[in-house]
Deep mutational scan, measured.
Amino acid sequence: KWTIEEKELFEQGLAKFGRRWTKISKLIGSRTVLQVKSYARQY
């Protein structure tokens, strides 16, 4: 389950980097690239 903080970081990353999942993953820190991709599908 994603925390509110992780969701906010995901949204910031999406706005800043677009669909560059590796960069978003590094920004969040606690999620892998695969987790970020998977979350993006449901987002």
Rank of each mutant, 00 (worst) to 15 (best):
K1T: 12
K1E: 12
K1M: 14
K1Y: 11
K1R: 10
W2I: 01
W2Y: 04
W2E: 07
W2N: 09
T3K: 03
T3M: 10
T3G: 10
T3E: 09
I4H: 05
I4T: 13
I4P: 06
I4A: 11
E5T: 09
E5F: 00
E6Y: 06
E6L: 15
E6C: 14
E6I: 14
E6R: 15
K7H: 10
K7Y: 01
K7P: 00
K7M: 11
K7W: 00
K7E: 03
E8Q: 12
E8T: 12
E8K: 15
E8G: 12
L9Y: 04
L9N: 12
L9A: 11
L9C: 00
F10D: 02
F10N: 05
F10G: 09
F10S: 06
E11I: 08
E11R: 07
E11K: 14
E11D: 11
Q12Y: 04
Q12R: 08
Q12L: 07
G13L: 09
G13M: 07
L14C: 04
L14W: 13
L14A: 09
L14P: 04
L14F: 08
A15T: 11
A15Q: 14
A15R: 06
A15Y: 08
A15S: 11
A15N: 05
K16A: 09
K16R: 13
K16W: 11
K16Q: 09
K16L: 08
K16H: 03
F17M: 03
F17G: 04
F17R: 02
G18H: 05
G18P: 03
G18T: 01
G18E: 03
G18I: 04
R19E: 15
R19V: 07
R20D: 15
R20A: 13
R20Y: 12
R20K: 14
R20N: 15
W21R: 00
W21K: 00
W21L: 13
W21I: 12
W21D: 08
T22E: 15
T22D: 15
T22P: 11
K23D: 14
K23V: 07
K23Q: 13
K23Y: 06
K23P: 07
K23T: 08
K23F: 07
K23L: 09
I24R: 01
I24C: 03
I24K: 02
I24Q: 03
I24F: 04
I24M: 03
S25L: 15
S25F: 14
S25P: 10
S25N: 00
S25H: 01
K26G: 10
K26A: 11
K26V: 03
K26H: 07
K26R: 11
K26S: 07
L27D: 02
L27Q: 05
L27K: 02
I28Q: 00
I28W: 02
I28L: 10
I28F: 02
G29I: 12
G29Y: 15
S30R: 04
S30D: 02
S30A: 04
S30W: 00
S30K: 03
S30Q: 03
S30T: 13
R31A: 02
R31I: 00
R31K: 09
R31T: 01
R31L: 02
R31C: 01
R31V: 00
T32Y: 00
T32P: 03
T32V: 01
T32I: 00
V33R: 13
V33D: 04
V33Y: 14
V33G: 06
V33Q: 06
V33T: 13
V33W: 15
V33K: 14
V33N: 04
V33S: 13
L34Y: 14
L34G: 15
L34K: 15
L34S: 15
L34A: 15
L34V: 14
L34T: 15
L34C: 14
Q35N: 05
Q35A: 13
Q35D: 09
Q35K: 13
Q35P: 04
Q35S: 05
V36W: 03
V36G: 02
V36P: 00
V36H: 00
V36S: 01
K37H: 04
K37P: 02
K37F: 09
K37Y: 09
K37A: 12
K37V: 13
S38I: 06
S38N: 14
Y39E: 02
Y39A: 05
Y39R: 07
A40P: 00
A40N: 01
A40H: 09
R41Q: 14
R41S: 15
R41V: 11
R41C: 09
R41A: 15
Q42G: 11
Q42D: 15
Q42P: 05
Q42M: 10
Q42E: 12
Q42R: 07
Q42K: 09
Y43C: 08
Y43A: 13
Y43L: 12
Y43G: 10
